[in-house]
Nucleic acid binder design. Sequence first.
DNA 1: TCCCAGGCTCTCT
DNA 2: AGAGAGCATGGG
Length: 276
Amino acid sequence: MVYFSNNNAYIEKDDFFSIDKTFDCGQCFRFERSGGIYNGIAFGKRLEILEEDDRIILKNVSEEEFNTLWKDYFDLDRDYKAINEIICRDKVASQAAEISKGIRILRQDKWEALCSFIISQNNNIPRIKKIINTLCENFGEKKGDFYAFPAAEVLAKAGVEKLSVLKCGYRAEYIYDAALKVSTGEIDLAGVSEMEYNDAKKYLMAIKGVGPKVADCALLFGFSFLSAFPKDVWIKRVIDKYYGKTFDESIFSPYGGIAQQYLFYYERYVRGKDKK
DNA sequence: TCCCAGGCTCTCT
DNA sequence: AGAGAGCATGGG
């Protein structure tokens, strides 16, 4: 349940919303934890969010802003408990779901998700964050003390040379191609949501630098295609380790993407524990 | 110095 | 269709 008071929005806690896990599972790159509070930007708005024993607090968020923005952003209308029952169909998936319980698949801005995961390729999460931060500071609209994610039009107009400030190497040309195609309408992001999954994936892969994995991440995190199952190095490790060559993500249908996120988080979690 | 990081493009079979 | 080199940059 949600209630509003003191200009804050309060979400009564259950097991299926953890802000730590949601922001620590590598799906978005613009939230940072500082002293128990997450501070970040989405859809051109800044959000401060923190978790107490019995509730999650969205600071300085009106009922109107909550209902029109953050409710969808955190995918709060979805029943993750029911989904987890579908995902828990073998021992590995069940363990992953238990460890990952509380992750919610954010419904991010389409362009931001696409652009962010183009940057993510063959890259590590701290540097991805750094590049995106530089991208926003250099090209995003200034909103008080922070910057919005830059529009495709702005990046297309800036040109590929100016993107060199990002120090993102060969990805600059990919960002530029995406910005160009989106800003001219050659790629219509709004229309992607109406497509079938396979068509949507092929459509996005017409952008230079967008392969199967980046397309799946964009579709999962930006377009709510919950069956998209991005196969990155971590997931390939999980599959090799626990499932083998016969693995088929359709066993989690239609929530492969959520299962993928659980397995991704689980593998990183397990590896983190092994390191200690 | 080499290896790795939420991979993709290009080339060669 | 499938395998492999090359690719910018930075951290360990």
